[in-house]
């Protein structure tokens, strides 16, 4: 069923910047994000420097996993590897820590999703080593 061509893409850690702490914490069900120590702000996706200061003084810190839907889209024509899943919801979630993440919104019918609705972190296991963050209604 899952031939190579249509397999769902699974994240490969450390392909962009050193992201191992993110995926290691994800294995334990904990969501970490980069935190700029100097400006005291989070950022996501992980960057090689702070987007606020340009410094590399970044730490991985846990976030609450609580947030609201900033925007969402209901995918009707699937990306490769998602053929059996339509319709599926992709949302930009704004966390309490004032940082946004683009995720799948699970456990809700597409027509029930509302911008501004509270959501919480959940996980989707994509492989033995990859536990991917997703969100669901709070």
């Amino acid at each position: 069923m899952n031939d190579i061509k249509s397999a769902r893409p699974v994240p490969k850690p450390n392909t962009f910047v050193a992201s191992e702490p993110f995926w290691e914490a994800a294995q334990r069900g904990q969501l970490l994000m980069q935190y700029c120590v100097e400006s005291e702000k989070f950022q996501h996706y992980p960057r090689p420097v702070s987007i606020y200061t340009g410094s590399r003084n970044l730490e991985w810190r846990p976030v609450s996993g609580r947030g609201t839907v900033y925007s969402y889209t209901v995918t009707r024509i699937p990306a490769a590897g998602f053929e059996g899943k339509v319709p599926y919801v992709i949302a930009t979630v704004e966390l309490e820590e004032r940082v946004r993440i683009v995720v799948n919104l699970l456990n809700i019918a597409p027509d029930k999703v509302k911008i501004g609705m509270p959501v919480k972190l959940c996980w989707e296991r994509l492989s033995e080593t990859i536990n991917n963050p997703a969100f669901e209604p709070a």
Binding site: R8, P9, V10, P11, K12, P13, T15, F16, S19, H44, Y45, P46, T73, T75, P78, A79, G81, F82, K85, Y88, I90, V102, V103, N104, L126, N132
Partner: peptide, 8 residues
């Protein structure tokens, strides 16, 4: 790593 796994 951070976007395509959502199937966007």
């Amino acid at each position: 790593e951070f976007l395509e796994p959502t199937g966007i």
